[in-house]
């Protein structure tokens, strides 16, 4: 099996919040077209790593190269980000939300929003405001927002939290399909078992560092 060139290269990434270091020197290459599950306890630095990759946090030191550049302005069209909060306006319907974000990305086609809502298994005609959605529906809509501009890289923070097993299975299949179209996907999750069989690699984090990468859902050997 030939390895593709890395789409994301992280070298000695450090992120400090005041006196607290959330990332203590993360270095890794991530190849394109794969699905990575990022695992670790609370406070291991998973969310910070994702936010830094999305350009929301400035690294305190170290370097990130995504698709050959370190300038986030050049690649934000290629990165989709889904956070733990929904990043949606509670008072507007799903369609209205996506229509607004489509304009931010300069997407002209009107059908794109409806298509993506159908793709995550929701009904575009639903006129209820997002604030009245169930948690599972809100997560799907949030995923739809991240997928909206068809990014090459997807950064997903806890997409399955509070989602019932059945819907989570649907989402995993959707992500697998997206990966098969050549996208690179990062999923931060506590429910890694869901991704077994779909994820290409499990990345284990602890105390702000990557402590190991495994092909299957098995914790790496503890380093002596």
């Amino acid at each position: 099996m030939t390895e593709t060139a890395p789409v994301i290269t992280v070298s000695n990434l450090i992120k400090q919040f005041g006196r607290f270091a959330a990332l203590r020197g993360v270095s890794a290459d991530f190849a394109g077209g794969k699905l990575y599950a990022i695992l670790g306890d609370n406070g291991a630095g998973k969310t910070t790593l994702l936010r830094t990759l999305a350009g929301l946090n400035q690294p305190s030191s170290g370097q990130i190269t995504i698709l050959g550049t370190s300038n986030f302005h050049d690649i934000c069209q290629q990165v989709g980000y889904m956070a733990h909060p929904s990043l949606l306006y509670d008072e507007m319907s799903g369609m209205e939300n996506l229509a607004y974000f489509a304009q931010l990305y300069g997407i002209a086609e009107g059908s794109r929003c409806a298509d993506i809502i159908r793709a995550v298994g929701l009904d575009p005609e639903l006129s209820r405001p997002v604030g009245q959605y169930s948690q599972g529906m809100r997560q799907r809509m949030s995923l739809a927002r991240a997928l909206l501009h068809d990014p090459k890289i997807l950064l997903l923070d806890e997409p399955f939290s509070n989602v019932d097993i059945h819907s989570a299975g649907d989402m995993v299949r959707l992500l697998g399909g997206t990966r098969d179209q050549g996208k690179t996907i990062f999923v931060v999750t506590h429910q890694a078992a869901l991704l077994e069989g779909t994820a290409d690699e499990f990345v284990w984090m602890e105390a702000g560092k990557i402590i190991g990468r495994t092909r299957s859902f098995k914790p790496p050997e503890p380093v002596a």
Partner: peptide, 17 residues
């Protein structure tokens, strides 16, 4: 305050707008 609820401001910041 409207943009902070659900951290929607982050969605704006990651977009090319």
């Amino acid at each position: 305050a409207r943009e902070l609820r659900n951290q929607v401001l982050d969605a704006y910041r990651v977009s090319p707008a």
